[in-house]
Design a binder for these strands. Structure first.
Length: 301
DNA sequence: CGTTGGCCCTGATCGC
DNA sequence: TGCGATCAGGGCCAAC
């Protein structure tokens, strides 16, 4: 379940193999991995073949690699996507959906493998459009251009252009529960189920706590917790909840060993010792401490 | 317009 | 051993 830290680990992993690397050939083993691409597989292959990668840029959970001509290869890992680097497509296993053969300047050839079990991830070629502001659109490039299909995605908490006070104000204008707001990629990006639960645990907030009832201070504190959780996960090389997430070198992350709430149902809260609960939330699960994160009371009147 | 609920997709795992 | 049920959840979109 790659979220911002895992995607950033992937970005850093592939970055040394982008600028100046030419895509010699493209193999699409399963066109369902191209659902974000407007057009058939042949179009994807044709537009990518012979192009030169310029950078590896990330905003939230979206990655894109500009290829010139105002276009970029856009990559979203979905739930189970992986980007693997190797020497031959055969080494990536049966879940390999797309392979790119790369030739680097003065280096031997290499293969970029897109592996995805559940097919929620995908690759696409998309037009780069102006964001309308001069600051970089994402991490990894100075360009202020962004793929059209990523334009509606908000900046993330590792983006220096994010103003916490302004973001906290935006959050406080929402009428939804706080977790739903954190997961809304048009408010802020990069947060998924795992890091939302971890940050809410640190902030001692229930997932249904109304966002508009947060004080400005509390909202900003929550953003700080999210940033801390991201930073710790990045240090650890990304969370790996199961074998599905492997970083670009094929190594599993291990932040999952330091999770306080997510996936800890039935275990004692590391802070107070009360049991961690698992509850249905938006067709998935939410984990919280039964004491530290009590269900909010209805406001009287 | 803001908000909300449901759907997509597959393979690992579990229970019988 | 076989097989159906269950589960994982990000992003999108229809509906309210």
């Amino acid at each position: 379940m790659p979220e911002l830290p895992e995607v950033e680990v992937v970005r850093r992993g592939i970055e040394p193999y982008t600028r100046g690397f030419v895509i010699e050939s493209v193999q699409v083993f399963d066109p369902r991995a191209l659902t974000r691409h407007e057009g058939p597989s042949e179009d994807f292959i044709h537009r990518l073949t012979g192009s030169t990668l310029e950078a590896a840029v990330r905003r939230g959970k979206f990655l894109w690699l500009p290829i010139g001509q105002g276009e970029a290869l856009v990559c979203h890992l979905g739930m189970s996507g992986q980007v693997l680097l190797g020497e031959h497509p055969d080494q990536f296993g049966p879940l390999l959906r797309v392979a790119l053969q790369l030739r680097g300047p003065g280096r031997k050839d290499m293969v970029w493998g897109f592996v995805d079990q559940r097919l929620f991830g995908s690759l696409a070629i998309d037009q780069l459009v102006d964001t309308g502001v001069s600051v970089p659109a994402g991490l990894g490039s100075d360009s202020s251009q962004i793929p059209r299909q990523v334009a509606h995605i908000a900046r993330d908490l590792l983006d220096p252009a994010v103003d916490d006070r302004q973001l906290a104000t935006t959050i406080r204008r929402k009428s939804s529960g706080i977790k739903r707001v954190l997961l809304d990629q048009s408010v802020l990006s990069g947060v998924g189920n795992i890091y939302a639960d971890e940050a809410l645990w640190r902030a001692k907030l229930h997932y249904d706590y109304p966002a508009h009832r947060l004080s400005l201070t509390k909202a900003r504190e929550l953003l700080g917790h999210l940033r801390d959780v991201f930073a710790q996960a990045l240090e650890d090389g990304g969370t790996s909840f199961d074998w599905q997430y492997v970083n670009v070198n094929g190594q599993s992350g291990y932040f999952s060993q330091s999770l306080n709430a997510y996936g800890q149902a039935g275990k004692p809260c590391p802070r107070c010792g009360r049991i961690i609960l698992r509850e249905p939330f938006m067709n998935r699960s939410s984990f919280r401490c039964s004491r530290c994160q009590p269900r909010p009371r209805r406001r009287v009147g």
